[in-house]
């Protein structure tokens, strides 16, 4: 198992090195900070998404779900659309990015908080139910934004459509620092829950039997997941199927139930996918497509394959 993780780590490092040093031609002062920032953003978001999907799948005891479909993506797009709709496209670039980031993250966290509160009021809560309501809210947000998009000036629309797809091409340093702090705090908070993950994967009854305060732990973990997804989305944009892709690859490749290994593995796979994807975007497609489009495509196809080959 250690060997497999080692292979993943090595592969990730090689890709990162390739990404940073390829075609640098000695322009270190220019190239290094730019690419370094991209890599940092990739590691952060990739890690956060992989981590939260893994935790989420363990809580739901289901490998075909991802927290990204809970409507947060659509909500993020709605917020961006509203900003452009009411303040014009220049505001997206003019407004302090930190403000936009803070507003987006807080609205998304507020939304998930309300969703949880609303659904966990009754007993026998069902995470599937939560997710379905989330998706429907997502459709609702989407209807709203696509309506506004029709009314927006085509020139301004261009600015907005850049936001529709995740991209590492323009990562703001200030946001990066802010996100690192947020992630750090959340990871610290999460630490005391790590030990429960293996047990939670046995299902609710078994976990309660083994003395886990199930409702308490699951609620806290869901909040952690929502915050991580919100920050990742606000930082680079929506990548719906990244989590799904890497969590399933991690399960297939590592074939273990231990979350310490699974989570580390999925974070590494996530970094490999994103750095590899970004290399393809820059070198093969020469920026004619974006990383999220590729990842969603590959992730989606892989996932349909998984669903169809699943046991009867």
């Amino acid at each position: 198992m250690k060997a497999k993780l080692g292979v993943l780590a090595g592969f990730a490092l090689v890709l990162i090195a390739l990404f940073i040093f390829m075609d640098a031609n000695g322009n270190w002062d220019y190239v290094l900070p730019r690419r370094g920032k991209k890599i940092l953003a990739i590691i952060l978001t990739g890690g956060a998404i992989a981590f939260s999907t893994m935790v989420f799948q363990t809580i739901t005891n289901n490998r075909i779900l991802t927290p990204s479909i809970m409507g947060l993506d659509s909500l993020y797009m709605l917020i961006q659309t509203i900003v452009v709709f009411f303040f014009g496209s220049t505001s997206l670039t003019m407004i302090n990015k930190n403000v936009n980031f803070a507003i987006s993250v807080s609205v998304m966290i507020l939304f998930s908080g309300l969703l949880y509160k609303f659904l966990f009021r009754r007993e026998g809560q069902n995470v599937y139910f939560l997710l379905l309501v989330g998706i429907i809210c997502g459709t609702f947000f989407q209807s709203m934004s696509s309506f506004m998009e029709v009314l927006i000036d085509p020139n301004e629309f261009q600015n907005l459509s850049d936001k529709m797809f995740a991209s590492f091409n323009n990562v703001n340093t200030d946001l990066l620092n802010l996100s690192i702090v947020c992630f750090g705090a959340i990871i610290l908070y999460f630490m005391k829950f790590t030990k429960y993950l293996d047990v939670l994967s046995l299902g609710r009854d078994a976990a309660v039997n083994l003395g886990v305060d199930y409702d308490f732990v699951v609620k806290r973990l869901l909040i952690v997941v929502a915050i991580l997804i919100s920050i990742a989305t606000a930082l680079i944009g929506p990548i719906t199927f990244l989590g799904l892709l890497v969590a399933n690859v991690a399960h297939q490749f590592l074939r273990t139930h231990k979350h310490s290994i699974l989570i580390t593995g999925s974070i590494l796979i996530s970094i490999i996918a994103l750095v590899g994807g970004q290399l393809i975007v820059e070198r093969v497609f020469t920026f004619s497509t974006t990383i999220s489009v590729i990842i969603n495509f590959v992730g989606g196809v892989y996932f349909i394959y998984l669903l169809l080959k699943g046991k009867k």
């Binding site: 005891n61 490998r63 293996d198 047990v199 994967s201 046995l202 299902g203 078994a206 083994l210 399960h251 074939r255 273990t256 139930h257």
Partner: peptide
């Protein structure tokens, strides 16, 4: 349960 677990792993959860 749908996770890949050996008998010994399962028992150790006890």
């Amino acid at each position: 349960i749908d996770i890949r677990l050996t008998v010994r792993d399962l028992v150790s959860f006890g």
